[in-house]
């Protein structure tokens, strides 16, 4: 019996190592995939924690390494929107939009031109009291519902979006749920006086510009307030910024 065959602790030969690895390949693959899936959010949080507020909502955290910013992309998106189309390529929803409002925010401090505001998809409810009577939604337009469930939407001036509803024929009054998708034109100049301060843009939302030229725009949220306290008023659109959306569900008969 030679010494080598007894030595159980000898390092495996390359061939043996290869066999072990390929046999254990699935184990490593599964662990690797789970590990990556579990690690990505934490890494994202860590990378995001080092970024400015403007950067966070302007580009993805994984672009940190390349140092690129996608502000120009966002401006390009704005130009698409500004042409008045509402095709599929224009619907890019995020929680807050950065950079799709100012045409030249990076260079143009302190004044910048406001372009077009997109109203994000909003789902609300509206009470149809009677058929074939236009229901005004301030700033958006008027809906006329027919008894068979068909409806007409006449957008208000400056609103070029769509209203989508799934109305089943019913007897009035009833409550229908609908979605607003669209854009609202806003033209004007905005004076930015202080870096880092947020500025209210009339009818549009709130904008904050940071010293590195990045900016965050929080569009005003149009929502159907249906709060208990004002239940005497008919449902109407009220203004809210995205971060304190207060659209509440239509109250259950109570």
């Amino acid at each position: 019996m030679d010494a080598q065959s007894l030595n159980l602790n000898r390092p495996p030969s390359p061939t043996e190592a290869l066999i072990t690895i390929t046999r254990r390949g699935p184990i490593h693959a599964i662990l690797l995939i789970i590990g990556i899936v579990w690690l990505v959010p934490s890494v994202g949080l860590a990378a995001t924690s080092f970024r400015t507020r403007g950067d966070i909502s302007a580009s993805g955290w994984w672009t940190v390494a390349s140092g690129s910013r996608t502000v120009t992309d966002q401006i390009w998106e704005l130009r698409v929107l500004a042409s008045g189309e509402s095709g599929e390529n224009t619907v890019v929803a995020g929680d807050s939009i950065s950079g799709d409002l100012l045409t030249d925010a990076v260079e143009g401090l302190p004044a910048a031109t406001i372009g077009r505001v997109r109203i994000q998809q909003i789902i609300g409810s509206i009470t149809v009291e009677a058929f074939e009577q236009p229901i005004e939604i301030p700033g958006v337009g008027a809906v006329t519902v027919q008894a068979d469930g068909a409806y007409d939407f006449a957008p208000a001036a400056g609103y070029s979006g769509a209203l989508v509803a799934d109305i089943e024929a019913a007897t009035a009054p009833f409550t229908a749920e609908f979605q607003l998708q669209g854009f609202e034109s806003i033209q004007g100049e905005l004076e930015i006086e202080e870096i880092g301060e947020s500025e209210r843009v009339p009818r549009a939302g709130k904008i904050s510009v940071y010293d590195d030229g990045s900016y965050v725009f929080e569009p005003r949220q149009v929502s159907l307030a249906h709060s208990k306290r004002r239940s005497t008023r008919p449902p109407c659109l009220t203004r809210h910024s995205r971060f304190n959306t207060r659209w509440s569900a239509p109250a259950v008969p109570y």
Partner: peptide, 19 residues
């Protein structure tokens, strides 16, 4: 809460922001 914020970012519909 922090995890929820991460996942909101992760699930963001904008492919420039949502991983």
């Amino acid at each position: 809460t922090a995890a929820a914020v991460i996942f909101r970012l992760l699930y963001n519909q904008n492919p420039n922001l949502g991983s």
